[in-house]
């Protein structure tokens, strides 16, 4: 070794690597910001512009428009509720199929996992577009879309919980001569119940937010009037929609979060 050389604090290789990563990340950013016309300076300009817009155009909201907003928001909520309920029911059995400690049949386990992974790559709106095409315009298309969307999330969460349960009770019930359904019902279900309820509420929150946009593609809910009012540049009405939606979402989130806190 050459004793004249400076002793590096950080090994050269690591230094080069870090610099390399930074160069890649920043050049990708440069490309992306040119492509989208959003340099950091312009990004920062956007924020005051937004406040200007809110103060000049959105305020005051058209309060009397609530007559249209309420029924639409209720429909949005109903879509979220029904799709979540369906997903909650269907996710339970499938979660056990997707849990490696319960489903030991590999020929069944791997296809289920694969199908779930594919399902979870599909953004919610894409499902909405597909179901509008299949069943036609209306809230039901939204229910289907969010059902499949939340099914993927819920099964992933629950099957991970199932995989983490204590195997002891399952073994004990198997030893008493219980069959697989009894093992799941008596040994596994009580162990996952709090998480199951909590994740269901969490998915309800996600679905409430997701259902706001459904109307843009004709799948029911508040998105429909939002789209109409946007194309008319009717900012007073838009402000009212945003205002009521924000309050509604906040109420649901708060209730659901406080329930979840008590559960786990």
């Amino acid at each position: 070794m050459d004793k004249q050389k400076r002793i590096p604090i950080i090994p050269l290789k690591q230094k080069l690597f870090t610099v390399g990563v930074l160069v890649v990340v920043l050049s990708l950013y440069a490309a992306a910001s040119i492509f989208t016309g959003s340099s950091p300076a312009r990004f920062m300009n956007g924020i005051p512009e937004m406040f200007n817009f809110i103060i000049n155009d959105l305020i005051p909201p058209n309060w009397s428009y609530y007559e249209r907003v309420f029924p639409a928001l209720l429909e949005t909520w109903n879509i979220a509720l029904l799709s979540t309920s369906l997903a909650v029911v269907f996710s339970l059995p499938i979660s056990f199929l997707a849990a490696g400690n319960i489903n030991k049949k590999l020929w069944l386990y791997h296809p289920v996992r694969f199908a779930l992974n594919v399902l979870r790559t599909i953004p919610d709106m894409i499902l909405a577009v597909m179901f509008v095409a299949i069943v036609g315009l209306g809230a039901l298309a939204g229910v289907y879309a969010l059902f499949f969307f939340s099914l993927g999330i819920l099964i992933k969460l629950i099957s991970e919980t199932v995989e983490a349960i204590d195997p002891g009770p399952l073994e004990a019930i198997r030893a008493t001569g219980g069959n697989i359904l009894q093992i799941i019902w008596f040994g596994a279900l009580p162990q996952i119940l709090p998480q199951y309820v909590s994740y269901s509420l969490y998915v309800l929150e996600i679905n409430v937010r997701a259902s706001l946009v459904l109307g843009f593609v004709g799948a029911g809910g508040i998105g429909l009037i939002l789209k109409q009012q946007m194309s008319l540049f009717n900012y007073g009405n838009i402000a009212m929609i945003i205002f009521i939606t924000f309050i509604g979402v906040t109420i649901i989130d708060t209730l659901s979060t406080s329930l979840r806190k008590r559960l786990v």
Binding site: G46, F53, L58, L226, Y235, I238
Partner: peptide, 17 residues
């Protein structure tokens, strides 16, 4: 997204914001 589309116009810039 809606507020940004309305305030800075349609397009990717609103999306980035």
């Amino acid at each position: 997204a809606i507020i940004f589309v309305a305030s800075v116009g349609m397009g990717p810039y609103a999306g980035v914001l």
